[in-house]
Amino acid sequence: MTQKSYQDTLEALCAEDDRIVVMTAENRAAIRGLPPKLGPRFIDVGICEQTMIGMAAGLSLRGRVPFVHALSVFLTMRAFEFIRTDLGIAGLKALIVGGVPGFLSDGNGPTHQAIEDIALMRGIPGMHVFCPADNEELVQAIPLLTKTDQACYIRYYDGAAPVTHKSPVEVGKAETLTEGDDIAILSVGFLLKETVKAQQVLSDAGHSTRLCNMRFVSPLDAEAVRDAAKTCKLVVCVEDHFKRGGLYSAVIEQLADEGIHGNVRSIALDQKWFTPGRLPQVLDNEGFTGDKLAKRIEALFKETV
């Protein structure tokens, strides 16, 4: 099945919904073909993330639905207070599309590593956080996210799908790809292509392993989290994010709120930036390839179960 690109999806959506405007802080990687198609509805502010968010708030105030684009790290951090104050306080809607989040910044180095972006964005009341695992989820979600009332931070990823999806994207819903009751892997974003392999290795080793593709960190799928914690002997949150503030934090907050005691562990970046390099080597070096994840999860299982 051929997938539409993000850009084509956005273009089609613009044609049917004249509220949509496409903005960028001179990062056109995902939207290079749109300027001639959208004319004045394509707004490039230059390398001015704060101004872009302020303008998005003003456009939203007038009823527009802005899609804003920049690298995740600059969008969510340089412009953080604008997102929090201009969009957040006002409850104004914009789709905040962050490029090369997490490990995807590969060779750029720590200045470009958005690995606290989820923590920041989910800390804003009402803000949704969507982490697509692949292009299929990304393009499926865009029309849905346009229709909600909430602003949403999108951790952009448009790679090929590593699995045949079992359920369509729904706001706040995870997708359970495999059932299991020894181990549950809660996977964030593009890491699905590695956690799928890890699930297979663990399953081959005789561990009944559940794989949840979380899709949204906010709103969190409380049902999926609750069921994993109650059913499985070990729940592992896998994310290319700081340990503090991301999926793992969201999960243990949810469980604590409900008074559920689960054996929940984290595989994330614990108080460190990652060593830059080409993506496959970064994954290997940080222990996030399918094989290495399986080994780490196996070790956690031996240690804690």
């Binding site: 101004t51 302020g54 303008m55 708030a57 003003g58 456009l59 105030l61 009823g63 604008f82």
Partner: peptide, 11 residues
């Protein structure tokens, strides 16, 4: 609000 007002002016 300079940037917010620019969004309104743009619209």
């Amino acid at each position: 609000l300079l940037s917010v007002s620019m969004g309104v002016a743009t619209d």
